[in-house]
Simulated assay, not measured.
Amino acid sequence: MTTENRGTKAIYPGTFDPLTNGHLDLIARGAKIVDELVVAVLRNTQKGTPLFTVPERVEMLQEATQGMAHVSIATFDGLLVDFARTQGARAVLRGIRAISDYEYEFQMAMMNRKLAPELETLFMMPAEKYTYVSSRLIKGVFELGGDVSSLVPSNVEARLKAKVPGKNA
């Protein structure tokens, strides 16, 4: 079966360090729009030292998306457009929480369009209750002893507690 016959496949890329309920919101809603959604964990990141390893992030995503139809988890490094081509994807799903996200995401979308004109970018806003949530904010609040239980899946909260002993025990 060719990719064209299967419908629209999209990539939702990110570091997911850690996975948040905002990410899950976009995954669930994005999976309703496209025929297949590949959640792609970036292996090499320029965002500094990650809290969780790539295999840990993949496991958390697999646990949290278990039962979601048409969602798979993968890893990649290098150019997103190259990964999208190898996957036979026709779109990239990106979340936008604020104007600052839009400015960055717009630049990335335009560069991706230059490199791969056949690849479309779909921008989605998270549910209102997650518009301020970011992985970086979750890590910072948790490391200072704050409660993030309503902002991350329970499996992620458990891993945060194991990773940062003595916090929110």
Rank of each mutant, 00 (worst) to 15 (best):
E120K: 05
E105D: 11
L80E: 00
V152C: 05
E56K: 02
Y12S: 01
I11F: 01
A116R: 11
V58C: 11
G14L: 05
P55H: 10
F52V: 00
Y12N: 03
A10D: 04
S135E: 09
R29K: 14
T3I: 14
K129G: 10
T121V: 06
H23D: 06
E59A: 01
G88Y: 05
V141T: 02
T53S: 15
G30I: 03
Q46S: 15
T20P: 05
T2C: 10
T3L: 14
M111G: 03
I138H: 02
G166V: 06
Q66V: 02
L160A: 04
I138Q: 02
A69I: 08
L93F: 02
N44M: 05
F83A: 05
T49G: 00
D25K: 06
G48Q: 05
F76Y: 06
L24M: 03
S149E: 12
E105H: 04
K161E: 13
G67M: 02
G78D: 14
G95S: 03
S134Y: 09
V156P: 15
G146M: 12
L115M: 15
D35Q: 13
R6W: 11
K114H: 06
L24S: 00
L115P: 15
F106L: 06
L119R: 02
K32Y: 10
G7V: 00
K167C: 03
L137Y: 07
G30F: 01
T2E: 15
N21K: 11
M68H: 12
D17L: 11
G14Q: 08
A162G: 15
V38F: 12
L42G: 12
A10I: 01
P50E: 01
S135H: 11
G146N: 14
Y130E: 15
T65H: 14
E63T: 07
F123P: 14
T2L: 11
E157C: 05
M108W: 07
P153D: 04
L119N: 04
A69S: 12
D77E: 15
S135W: 11
